[in-house]
Design a protein around this nucleic acid. Structure first.
Lengths: 226, 226
DNA sequence: TTAATTTGTAATAAATCTGTAACAAATTAA
DNA sequence: TTAATTTGTTACAGATTTATTACAAATTAA
């Protein structure tokens, strides 16, 4: 486990408990005891997940949550709310305001950990694992390996990045411009037709013996992973 | 809302309640009352989310969940577990086995809906937005795909844009001029009769086997989606 | 260094899409 | 009813888009 977790919580004893245990699990942890500081520090820390107390001295957890969801830079930050209230009404409010999960105090650390893993697994699998998958295709970022049907296949560096990009959003159609922007190093100028050639190379590599085509051409729009 | 939700649950009364309400919300719902059938049907249905009962006649929810997580094709299917047991131990087991959330019976439909939305919003934002529908016709901008009765149909780029335009305002009649303005790239000059030909092409594509005509001709005014 | 691999481009082939014209069919007006 | 208007349908040539190949330059490894 290697993600960064930020905690906004006004009870130091809880911070201490959670931080200590999360660090033992391999997370990098930072925290703040009030909402305004938290929102500021959050930006610098760039966590993969936020643990957010419902009741804070200055802002409410819901306020913070909404603030985050409306602020483009951390729009999609997964949030787990810690709450002392137990009523269903509040729970729903929390979930609808964009919270990913909530936990009622007092909670056991194990329960918290399980939820963190579940949310991260769903939201940001690369934090939990560094392998991207789609059907029988697997890409390991860490080892820089690609497999089809568990058989390793060789792809060049550009094809690797290209596949990595497609795997980050399977089924979504990307235009050649979007592909250029995301797969090629910044400010490099390549002919947009060049992409076709790399697509061809990638296809050639990943379509081993009679496996189905995984890259879809969408005429006048671009390409997608099926 | 337009995602597909699959339910594996052995109590017909719950299925009925949930299915009915989810359909009212715009979801496409299918279900199964036991684990083995469920696992099979799941693959055909390709849902965006699974509601899974903890206790089933044949397999346990946990078994099913693990099976899904280990099976490459639906590895990342979001799962919400429905459980009658309330002990924390079980909850953790569920979450660690890859469940995204769980709900303890009895639950209110609103609570369920809130959770479904929360999970989908995080996991599969394109399901929650980005798709246009009218009756049994569906267009996904994200994937650039068109479906009639859940069967994918192929349309050319211009027909896609044309359909996208009609879907943005079903039932409204558009004149050929309006269609030209909105569907064709700016400053391009095409004969207005050309639209008739594209309408014909679009009709041909979306009217698969005996489905009813969806594009209405309004003589001397234009066309509309029924 | 040399050899091997990777990369971008250009050229050409192949596939698909597009607009128009021509005629048929349907509808409305006289 | 006939004539006029509007829409449906088809075929086709030209245009556009994508696939494929070959090759030279650049990069990397040995």
């Amino acid at each position: 486990m290697n993600g960064k977790i930020f905690i906004i919580e006004d009870e130091p004893s809880i911070i201490q408990l959670v931080q200590h245990n999360l660090e033992k699990e391999g997370f990098l942890v930072a925290s703040s005891t009030n909402g305004n500081d938290g929102l500021k520090d959050l930006k610098k820390f760039e966590p993969n997940l936020l643990l957010l107390d419902w009741m804070l001295p200055d802002l409410s957890g819901i306020d913070i949550c909404k603030n985050i969801r409306n602020n483009s830079s951390h729009k999609n930050l997964p949030i787990i709310m810690l709450t002392a209230k137990g009523e269903e009404e509040d729970k729903i409010k929390g979930l609808d305001s964009g919270v990913d999960d909530y936990l009622t105090k007092p909670f056991s650390f194990n329960e918290l950990l399980a939820r963190i893993k579940a949310v991260l697994r769903r939201y940001d699998p690369k934090v939990v694992s560094n392998s991207l998958e789609f059907e029988d295709l697997k890409l390991n970022r860490f080892e820089k390996r690609v497999f089809r049907k568990n058989i390793e296949i060789q792809v060049g560096p550009t094809e690797f990045r290209l596949l990595e990009f497609f795997l980050s959003n399977p089924k979504r159609v990307y235009s050649r411009d979007q592909i250029l922007e995301n797969v090629w190093p910044n400010n490099i100028n390549v002919e947009s037709r060049t992409i076709d050639v790399h697509i061809r190379r990638l296809r050639k590599s990943i379509n081993i013996d009679k496996t189905k085509e995984l890259i879809r051409t969408v005429r006048s729009s671009g390409y997608s992973l099926i």
